[in-house]
Amino acid sequence: MTRPQKHSLTIGGHRTSVSLEPDFWNGLREIAALRDQGINALVTEIDATRQPDTGLATAIRLFVFRHYRDRS
């Protein structure tokens, strides 16, 4: 298992950092490409729909997981 990697993102004009495992970063990039979106735009959508008590990194992991689960 690999350690999470921290990347900076811009969400709604504000910079933030998110730590995710490389597989989740790769999945997020792939999904963004399939939607013809940038990662920042996709994460902005994820951020806007997450529950208030769910952290951003968790919301991203769940989004990526659900995307691939629903595809199979």
Rank of each mutant, 00 (worst) to 15 (best):
M1I: 06
T2R: 09
P4M: 02
Q5S: 09
Q5I: 14
Q5R: 11
K6R: 10
K6W: 05
S8K: 10
L9N: 05
T10A: 05
T10I: 12
I11L: 15
I11V: 15
G12E: 15
G12Y: 03
G12Q: 12
G13D: 13
G13W: 10
H14C: 05
H14E: 15
H14F: 10
R15I: 06
R15H: 14
R15A: 15
T16Q: 14
S17R: 09
S17D: 14
S17E: 13
S17N: 12
S17G: 13
V18T: 06
V18G: 07
V18R: 01
S19M: 04
L20V: 09
E21S: 06
D23Y: 07
D23A: 12
D23R: 07
F24N: 00
W25H: 08
W25D: 02
W25E: 03
N26H: 11
G27K: 03
R29Q: 10
E30H: 11
E30V: 05
I31F: 14
A32Q: 04
A33E: 11
L34H: 14
L34N: 13
D36L: 11
Q37N: 09
G38E: 11
G38Q: 04
I39Q: 06
N40V: 08
A41Q: 13
A41R: 08
A41K: 05
A41P: 01
L42F: 08
L42W: 10
V43R: 03
V43E: 05
T44D: 14
T44A: 15
T44S: 14
T44G: 12
I46S: 11
D47E: 15
D47I: 05
A48F: 10
A48I: 03
A48D: 09
T49C: 04
R50T: 01
P52L: 03
P52E: 07
D53W: 01
T54G: 00
T54S: 02
G55M: 05
G55E: 08
L56G: 01
A57L: 05
T58P: 00
T58Y: 05
A59H: 02
A59C: 03
A59D: 01
I60Q: 00
I60C: 04
I60H: 01
I60R: 00
R61D: 07
R61M: 12
L62S: 08
L62I: 12
F63A: 12
F65C: 06
R66P: 00
R66K: 11
R66V: 07
R66L: 09
H67V: 12
H67M: 09
Y68A: 09
R69G: 01
D70W: 06
R71P: 00
R71Y: 12
R71L: 15
R71I: 14
S72H: 15
S72N: 14
